[in-house]
């Protein structure tokens, strides 16, 4: 199992396109992936579910905790981390 805490910098947070990219990336891996909004209350949700990721209400500057568990856990965590750090491919 691997985990990381990352701050979301994107201006609309994990919504619309960023949320879709986040979920699409998560779905590329076999591992179980969970994500939680540390800035708000609430529990972990399935990172492969767009609906559940939206329920986290992650906005600009919120911190999220990502946990990956499975054969490609490290790869998955890296991919999601770099997606958020690179601001979802936007400058």
């Amino acid at each position: 199992m691997a985990e990381a805490t990352i701050q979301v910098k994107h201006k609309i947070g994990l919504h619309a396109r960023p949320a879709a990219l986040f979920v699409q990336t998560a779905n590329k891996f076999k591992s179980k992936i969970k994500v939680k909004n540390l800035t708000a209350t609430g529990d972990f949700v399935d990172a492969k579910s767009i609906i559940m990721v939206l329920t986290l209400g992650v906005m600009k500057d919120h911190k999220v905790l990502i946990q990956t568990d499975g054969i490609d856990a490290d790869l998955a965590l890296d991919a999601l981390k770099s997606l958020i750090e690179n601001n979802f491919g936007e400058a």
């Binding site: 619309a16 396109r17 949320a19 879709a20 979920v23 699409q24 779905n27 949700v45 399935d46 492969k48 579910s49 767009i50 609906i51 559940m52």
Partner: peptide, 16 residues
């Protein structure tokens, strides 16, 4: 159009 991309995403949503 992105709204319908999101709809496609929701179709295969594991929570649903």
């Amino acid at each position: 159009a992105s709204i319908f991309e999101a709809h496609q995403e929701m179709l295969s949503d594991p929570a649903l």
